[in-house]
Nucleic acid binder design. Structure first.
Lengths: 150, 150
DNA sequence: ATAACACGCTTCCATTATGGGAGCAATAAT
DNA sequence: ATTATTGCTCCCATAATGGAAGCGTGTTAT
């Protein structure tokens, strides 16, 4: 059986078929947290994804309706990747993953201020993040939380 | 590089190192939703995991502190797997994954009643699920939602 | 007591996915 | 024109999974 064949009609299994690999959520993070949008920007992430793996993930995420791909207007070599609504709807899942990771990761880089800000009023924070990403912004810029986020 | 070497100090990356494979969350689901706790019960899931893969996952999840393993008292051949606190804390993430999957999966098996019940008051529902699992119960039994869950 | 079975788990190997490097076509900069 | 950048592909070594068979120990049946 190919690994990505549908194994059941469970909603969790569907979600894992979509984003249950080691890279997809990190690409979503790069867009939501850091405002990345091009191949080269994703490639430059801390986790050092290989070009072949990144290419495969981007093609796959577009095929699955999580990313949109458009040729950049300023530089026609560049492809611009943005989250679809389906992709933006992964923000809550990503925040839960981050909260869990920050709680149990002894070496976490997540600031406690950011974590408590999210816990404080999660739905409002999700809306604000979503709006920011839709309008071309992101949570972090140059290593600092956006002013609206705290 | 081995796939599970630590790639960065990002909390999301940590979480993916822990449960970012195609099976771990399904094992958590089997415990939380269906009250499964033995090798044979996990093996009988819809998704048809192979014995070798299941064995690997269980060893790994115990090593990572997400599952506890104890020899069954009634039948000493059986190992009983239960969620640690770290594992129980995955319930919010699992519910978000399920909600996202149910929203975008055309063939979802998730009932809309259950989904809206969770959306209605998420923190309270998480507490109730957590309590149920800790005391040896589960969300679904014989295909129906537990009475407390709706 | 002994044979048959149940259960968790391991081992083997074929298949599939990833990691890393080299390289290519198209575009941009000089 | 020449050189550099960008996104991406190819190739192959390595790692993880899928599937079947089998092992050891504990349990049940006779």
């Amino acid at each position: 059986m190919k690994r990505n064949d549908r194994k059941s009609d469970c909603a969790i299994n569907y979600a894992l078929d979509m984003i249950g690999d080691p890279w997809s959520m990190l690409i979503v993070r790069d867009i939501v947290y850091f405002g990345k949008r091009t191949f080269g920007e994703f490639l430059a992430s801390q986790e050092r994804i290989a070009t072949s793996a990144l290419s495969r993930r981007l093609i796959d995420l577009e095929y699955k309706g999580i990313l949109d791909k458009t040729t950049s207007l300023e530089d026609k070599r560049k492809e611009t990747y943005t989250l679809t609504n389906k992709g933006l709807d992964l923000i809550p899942t990503m925040l839960e993953l981050a909260a869990w990771g920050a709680r149990y990761d002894a070496n976490t880089g997540a600031s406690s201020a950011w974590i408590t800000a999210v816990e404080q009023d999660k739905p409002a924070m999700i809306d604000r993040i979503r709006q920011a990403v839709r309008t071309g912004n992101a949570v972090f810029s140059e290593g600092k939380e956006a002013t609206w986020s705290l």
